[in-house]
Simulated scan of single mutants.
Amino acid sequence: MQVLIVEADPDRARSWAAAPGGQGWTVRLASTNRTAIALMDAEAFRVIVLSLDLADGKVPSVPVYAGYRQPEAKIIVVTATGMFHDGSIFQLCSNACTIPGTSAKPADLAARVDNHGNRPVPVRSAAPGANAVH
Rank of each mutant, 00 (worst) to 15 (best):
T98Q: 10
A96T: 12
V78E: 13
A73V: 03
G82H: 06
S94Q: 07
Y65W: 07
V78P: 13
S31P: 05
S94H: 08
T81I: 09
S31G: 15
D56W: 00
K58V: 12
M83G: 10
A36Y: 09
F90C: 03
Q91T: 02
G67N: 07
P60G: 04
M40C: 05
E72I: 12
F45G: 04
C97W: 04
C97F: 03
A30V: 05
P100C: 10
F45D: 07
N95R: 01
G57Y: 08
V64S: 12
Y68N: 14
N95A: 00
Q70R: 06
G57F: 03
E72A: 07
F45E: 05
Y65R: 02
R46L: 05
H85C: 15
G67T: 09
K74T: 06
S88H: 14
P63V: 09
R69W: 10
T35A: 15
M83F: 15
I99N: 11
D53R: 08
A73T: 05
M83E: 14
V78S: 10
N33A: 14
L39E: 06
F84V: 12
L39P: 09
V47C: 00
M40A: 07
A38G: 11
T26G: 13
T26A: 13
A73E: 04
C97I: 01
Y68A: 11
A55V: 07
Q91C: 02
F45R: 09
V49L: 03
T35H: 13
D41R: 14
Q70C: 04
H85P: 11
A42W: 09
M83D: 15
R46I: 02
Y65F: 09
I75M: 07
Y65L: 05
A80S: 11
A44Y: 14
L50F: 07
T79R: 04
P63I: 04
V47N: 03
D41Q: 12
L50R: 07
M40V: 03
L39K: 05
D53S: 11
S61T: 13
Y65Q: 00
A38K: 10
G57Q: 11
V62C: 10
V78M: 13
P100E: 03
A80I: 02
Q91V: 05
A80L: 02
K58W: 10
S51W: 08
M40Q: 01
V78T: 08
V27I: 09
M40I: 03
D41Y: 04
N33E: 14
A36V: 12
N33R: 06
A80F: 02
V62E: 06
D56S: 01
S31D: 10
V27Y: 00
L29R: 02
P60W: 09
T35I: 15
I99Q: 13
L52C: 10
T26M: 11
L39Y: 11
S31F: 04
E43V: 10
T79W: 01
R34I: 08
T26L: 13
R34D: 13
I48F: 13
T79D: 08
A66I: 09
A73P: 03
Q70S: 01
